[in-house]
Computed example of a mutant assay.
Amino acid sequence: MKKLLLAATAALTMPIMAQAHFLLEYTTDTIIERPGDVPVKLVFWHPFEAGHVMALEKPEEFFVIHNGEKTDLMDTLQETSFEGPDNSAKAFLGSVPVKRSGDYVVVTVPAPYHEESEDIYIQQITKAYLNRNGLPTDWDQPQGLVTEILPLNKPYNIIAGSTFSGRVLSEGKPVAGAEIEIEYIAAAPDMTGTGAHEATVSPLPGGALVTISDDNGYFSFGVPKAGYWGFAALGSGPKTEHEGKELSQDAVIWIRAWDLE
């Protein structure tokens, strides 16, 4: 009964925890006007709180898919640091070659991160989307990851105030009852420095925003504000253990919402 009620609600949330870990694949823009190399900053952070930064080891994979073709981008990664208000931690700066028209699906498969406070590992397999010249090519297709969120709206030009919907997949199959944390990038990373700009919003009271996928893996969320929104399906992947400890293999997707002007 609970799943049915949650599935029927366009944007249902509940408090569970104060902070949510999110792997960012941050780009200044999602709509690319001129061909060239687009910088991408990889940061493991609590973006809604603009708080504590976790150390990000070199990813296992970093690539882009365009017109169904995969291009390895590991050689573009450069180690850097990212400074939060309380600490600094390892991050990476990469780049994505955006030349032709169409969609560019940026994928990061990070090394599992050991969360000492819970004594578990976290691996957030993350997707973000770029587009050039308004030609849709890849956004509505799964990328064949072990776990991922398939968007049902074009993820790079959502209208603020509308609804975003997605489907949680594990090895290509829908995940029922997945717990999905939702975060907003309150303070945009500075692409020329090592910190972030001033926060534009404060997190809501009551902890992380959460929704639950229905019996067919679908979920929806009413997007209230322009900017970057992230969705993390916790433990949706097939792998549950790493180095003898529990592993939460999460699917993360980032979308960009815009105000109508």
Results as ranks from 00 to 15, higher is better:
K245T: 02
H52W: 10
P47W: 04
L204R: 15
L130V: 09
A20H: 03
V98E: 04
T147M: 02
G237H: 10
K2V: 14
K3H: 10
P97A: 08
K41A: 06
G206N: 02
V210H: 06
E25I: 13
G166P: 11
P189T: 03
G172C: 06
W139C: 02
G244F: 13
V53C: 12
S81F: 14
S165H: 11
G230A: 14
G217T: 03
I159E: 07
T147W: 01
I120V: 09
K154V: 09
N157F: 10
K3F: 13
A55L: 05
V146P: 03
A7G: 15
N87M: 03
P97S: 00
T211L: 09
D29N: 14
I159T: 12
M74Y: 04
A160W: 09
G51M: 10
I149S: 04
V210Q: 07
N153L: 12
T137C: 00
V201K: 11
K90Y: 05
E115V: 07
V98K: 02
P224E: 15
D72I: 03
A8H: 12
V175W: 01
L42T: 06
G206D: 13
S236C: 05
H197N: 15
F92L: 05
I120A: 14
I31Y: 12
G193P: 11
P155F: 09
V40N: 06
L73Y: 02
S165M: 12
K90F: 05
T200C: 07
P224T: 11
S220M: 13
H21D: 13
D72V: 00
